[in-house]
């Protein structure tokens, strides 16, 4: 097949693949038109407002899902503690912002750095020693569940179970063309989140560290004998995942306006859904999956009660997997 492609005469397999790709493009385009029409039927303004809300939700979904996906890709570890890393980041920012009076930007940065440090510490204290002892996947999974409880209860122990708020100006909004409005906080969430996602996507695609992470995700022992210091790359992966989780935590609690020790764990299911929707282990897929899920959940509130939006997200997940079993950007593993 390769030889045929090189000579410029497409093989039957190539032709078929091209036809399938073209058909998929048409289906995607038709789907996009149908969704747009459906949304417009409720009024353009309502649809646009739901889209803005979807962008806000999608941004922190994507941030959380990318970290989850990086860890799964590199270590094949399904990290049930990831949601509580969001909680941890948000509460550190809350501590700095509300209790110590720091402005929101340095407080956010503090939350991000503290969560990165927590993730790195978990690698050094738990995951690295467990790998050295060749712990099985199930044991590691149970540890992540246990770690989730430890973080959540630790937060609750210090901060209590009552809902708390970051000190933010939630009353001002920015007027957009067409009479739409986006809260200043929401705008800040979207700009910061999308900026961070863009930076991460660029690093993964072009940076040496990003390529090394992809190499480890492909084949850990080959990465070792190719001369990559795998311990360093794994530690960097945790730092990244932690930082992204911390940022997602601060942004989502800022957007929601309120936080409790359970909020990260409640988000976890959506983060898993976003990761799988995009193609598990594929960081770009998680990014796309997170944004899509955010839009879908917010759009659904135009048709059904907001209580059902999590269910809507999962219906979309299941439908997508029926059509594309490896997720949106996933493909059958290249071996």
């Amino acid at each position: 097949m390769l030889n045929a492609a090189r000579r410029g005469t497409p093989s039957p397999a190539d032709t078929r693949a091209a036809a399938v790709r073209a058909a998929r493009r048409w289906i995607a385009a038709a789907l996009a038109v149908a969704v747009a029409a459906l949304l417009a039927s409720r009024g353009v303004e309502t649809a646009a407002q739901a889209t803005i809300n979807g962008l806000v939700t999608g941004t922190y979904f994507a941030l959380g899902a990318v970290g989850l996906s990086l860890v799964f890709g590199v270590l094949r570890l399904v990290n049930f503690a990831h949601g509580d890393m969001l909680t941890f980041g948000a509460y550190v920012a809350l501590l700095l912002n509300a209790a110590l009076g720091w402005p929101i930007v340095p407080a956010t940065l503090g939350g991000v750095l503290a969560t990165a440090a927590l993730a790195a510490a978990s690698e050094l204290a738990i995951w690295r020693p467990m790998r050295a002892r060749r712990a099985g996947g199930f044991q590691l999974l149970l540890i992540t569940v246990g770690l989730a409880f430890v973080i959540r209860n630790g937060v609750q122990l210090v901060a209590g179970a009552d809902p708390l708020q970051l000190r933010l100006d939630v009353t001002t909004a920015v007027a957009l063309p067409g009479g739409l409005r986006i809260g200043t906080v929401e705008l800040w969430v979207v700009v910061t989140g999308l900026g961070a996602l863009l930076a991460v996507a660029t690093l993964l695609r072009y940076g040496r560290l990003g390529k090394e992470m992809r190499a480890l995700a492909d084949n850990l022992s080959l990465a070792e004998v190719a001369g990559i210091d795998t311990g360093r790359v794994i530690l960097a992966t945790w730092l990244f995942a932690g930082a992204l989780a911390g940022l997602a935590g601060v942004l989502s609690s800022a957007a929601a306006g309120i936080l409790t020790p359970n909020f990260g764990f409640q988000l976890l299911l959506s983060l898993f859904a976003a990761t799988i929707l995009g193609g598990i282990g594929n960081a770009y897929g998680a990014l796309a999956g997170g944004l899509l899920l955010g839009f879908a959940e917010e759009w659904s509130t135009m048709f059904v009660d907001a209580r059902w939006k999590l269910a809507v997200g999962f219906v979309i997940l299941i439908l997508t997997l029926l059509v594309r079993p490896n997720g949106l950007l996933g493909r059958p593993a290249l071996k």
Binding site: K211, R214, A215, A223, A226, A333, L334, K335
Partner: peptide, 12 residues
Amino acid sequence: FPSLTVEENLEM
């Protein structure tokens, strides 16, 4: 590394 390009394989 199957998901890396030939050049990226060498870069590793």
